[in-house]
Amino acid sequence: MADTAVVEKNQGIQFGKKERKLLTDPLNDNNPITVQVLGICSALAVTTGMKNATVMAVAVVFVCLFANVITSALRKAIPKQVRMIVQLVIIATLVTVVELVLKAYAFESYKQLSVFIGLIITNCIVMGRLEAFAMANKPYESALDGLGNGIGYGIILLMVAAIREFFGKGEFYGYKIIGPSPEYAINTLESSLFGWYQGNNLMVLFPSAMFVIAVLIWAHRAWNPKLVDVS
């Protein structure tokens, strides 16, 4: 954790209480997934394994950060009538950059994520932050806001993926931990000590992401009661 006020060389760029709040608020009180309910689609499809989830999280942080900065820098030049389209063009460009780079340097992930890379464009977190924050704030603050929201999203993504990968496949980030063959660290063949253990294949399927997120929301709200839905 940074101290309350780290003043960097460049005067004007400060990292004080307000800036820290911009960065940490989306991690808890205003989490994009569990509180704002934005960007669910990709959270479901790519969380079968940690590897894909990591690539997706990094991609979203990148898009969120730069879309916020660019929009914020252009905010006075963007004509109000075509605001939405301009924002979408900026996002779509960044997403295309992500796609081209992944295709060149992380081909396996590119193959596995397929259409879901494109769907970052409609990841409402990015769009939502542009509309709600970047259009009204300076680039530096927007950068922090983008970073915070991207990371807040990424953390939930990784948590869901870790749960699904471990209980579904008995693996963690591709390392075989528990499963019915000698390749795993804990072998669950019938003769061994852990013979009673069975991987839960439901965790690999799409709907399980819904259940995992529901439980995460439940836990989050039980721990942070001010978020409870009173309606």
Binding site: P79, V82, V86, T96
Partner: peptide, 21 residues
Amino acid sequence: SVLLFVLTLTSIVALILAFLQ
């Protein structure tokens, strides 16, 4: 002026992507 803005933006974007591609 709106049209000009959109056209400039689109051509910059298309150029960047074409280079990258």
